[in-house]
Design a binder for these strands. Structure first.
Lengths: 124, 124
DNA sequence: TGCAAGTATGCAGTATACTACATACTTTAA
DNA sequence: TTAAAGTATGTAGTATACTGCATACTTGCA
């Protein structure tokens, strides 16, 4: 069980950002009832997994709301199995679209590089 | 040569957003000197190419500044050849990183789906 | 023991990327 | 010809995602 500072150090996400994510409902920790002197919050490995997922998803342009959709059904059982699958399928489709876009961008940039190397300038 | 409305219709980008992009220096049109009755701005195919690139890059989480770095050297010759290559290489590296992240996300989400289908709940 | 460092909470401020609104002029089509 | 639609410009407002500051209490270490 980690405190917020450790969470921050291990993920590289600033504490302020972590608090913002927690307030946004992306993850949550627990207080230890046996500790009465303070109200520190503790986080488990589940939280670390979620944070690593959040970092990946953010890096490829998913919004916090889109990420929350997925992370939510990670551990919740309230929605139906089909509803869960639907959320995941929607995100999988977006991932495939983003991959196609990355491939197209890569091709375009590589072409641009070749053209620069050939001193012809414009990559169109 | 297209007017802004046509640009918007062909790309699906709202006019307000296009004006914002143009003001941000992502692209620019030209006024026709032979037309004196108005100051309408016309855009060529070069602009359309830039817009298509902007759309792809935005979809995979690049910022407008990162996009501008690339789009700028599309048609400018002021910076050295090596500086141009450097900008492109930086973006190519980002693209590879994003692709790896998409692949990891996809794997994770697919695993999650399998686990839901198996009614075991948690995909870890 | 005392003080720096860590934690919780709340609220204000910032950066990025739009989005809407107001004004004024131009073009187009009934 | 006149009203609707298009264009230019500027300014203000909004949404998302942080980021910083202030306050107050707790922990850990010299």
């Amino acid at each position: 069980m980690k405190l917020i500072n450790q969470l921050s150090k291990e993920t590289g996400i600033p504490i302020g950002t972590l608090r913002f994510y927690e307030k946004s409902g992306l993850f949550s920790g627990k207080r230890k009832t046996e500790v009465t002197s303070n109200n520190y919050v503790y986080y488990d490995e589940e939280v670390m997994e979620k944070l690593r997922f959040i970092q990946m998803a953010k890096a490829v342009g998913f919004t916090l709301v889109e990420i929350k959709d997925v992370v939510d059904l990670w551990y919740k059982k309230e929605i139906t199995q089909q509803a869960q699958i639907n959320v995941l399928d929607r995100r999988l489709k977006q991932i495939d679209e983003k991959m196609a876009e990355l491939k197209a961008m890569k091709k375009q940039i590589e072409l641009c590089k070749v053209n620069i190397a050939n001193r012809r300038g414009n990559p169109g």
